[in-house]
Design a protein around this nucleic acid. Structure first.
Length: 261
DNA sequence: AATTGTCCCAACCGCGCTCCA
DNA sequence: TTGGAGCGCGGTTGGGACAAT
């Protein structure tokens, strides 16, 4: 496929938009809409490429854009959605009315990512999970007309987990799986969070069978023992790692998990 | 007051997807 | 079925604003 030349090569303007350009774009879209972004700048009399116009409109000029700082609730929603959806900024933005994917991406990289990273590092992890135990209680608004995030996940059963402890147990099953202590109330203690690496999560995701690796035995064992039912999710490794860390560290219930999703 | 460093965000880049002729 | 056109997405960057020295 032959790509169209970039703006610069076509002699079009790049860089920050002037108020005059903004006004031209707003006036044109208010009058004619934006059916064809490629043709729009020429018809509107702008020395910009269509792509630049679309970006300016969707990220800044749209009348329904909410300006200003993100509220704490919005930030918590972003954190929650990011754990579920990963870097799917547009999907996250669809659940935050008035916020753009670009804006959310920026706030994630400048604020939220650092916060999460710091809190994942033990012992701060406990603080993070404690915070999220509260914040996860809220509703996640579904995007209008869009398949819910929940529907985009496919749940499968850990068949092999059922066989752990039996004569046919896979090699990775071990009676040590119960060695991870739970709190007296039955919740998993965050003191016992596993040191999970990518290979572990790859195993979790690869099949509808669970494989346990070394120190992860306890972690998986707890799932098998009914903390969450026998559930896993098909999604990229990194997202799942975050997801499981969060859900599991909070000692969540299956019903809660379903509600979140 | 001048310089340097850091943060933040608007805008750009390039890839991949969908649509359509 | 193929390939061009258009669009949307996520990653990256340039440069202004502000803080620290």
């Amino acid at each position: 496929m032959v790509r169209s030349p970039c703006c610069e090569k076509m002699g079009l303007k790049k860089g920050p938009w002037t108020p005059e350009e903004d006004q031209i774009l707003i006036n044109y879209i208010n009058l004619y809409g934006h059916g064809n972004w490629r043709a729009l700048p020429k018809q509107a009399g702008l020395l910009r490429c269509g792509k630049s116009c679309r970006l300016r409109w969707t990220n800044y000029l749209r009348p329904d854009i909410k300006r200003g700082n993100f509220t704490q609730q919005e930030e918590e929603t972003i954190i929650k959605l990011h754990q579920m959806l990963g870097n799917r900024w547009s999907a996250i933005a669809a659940r935050l009315p008035g916020r753009t994917d670009n804006e959310i991406k920026n706030v994630w990289h400048t604020h939220l990512k650092k916060r999460i990273t710091q809190n994942y590092a033990t012992p701060q992890l406990r603080n993070y999970t404690a915070v999220n135990r509260q914040s996860y209680g809220g509703d996640i608004p579904a995007a209008a007309g869009e398949e819910s995030a929940a529907q985009s996940y496919k749940f499968t059963t850990f068949h092999s987990m059922q066989s752990c402890g039996s004569a046919s147990s896979p090699p990775h099953c071990s009676s040590e799986s119960s060695s991870v202590a739970t709190a007296e109330n039955g919740e998993l203690s965050t003191n016992n969070l596993p040191e999970a690496d990518d290979s572990f999560w790859m195993e979790v995701l690869a099949n509808d069978q669970i494989a346990m690796v070394g120190s992860q035995q306890g972690f998986v064992g707890e799932i098998y023992q009914g903390q969450f039912g026998n559930l896993t999710m098909e999604q990229p490794v990194n997202e799942t790692m975050d997801f499981w860390y969060n859900i599991f560290a909070r000692g969540g219930e299956l019903s809660e998990l379903k509600e979140i999703l």
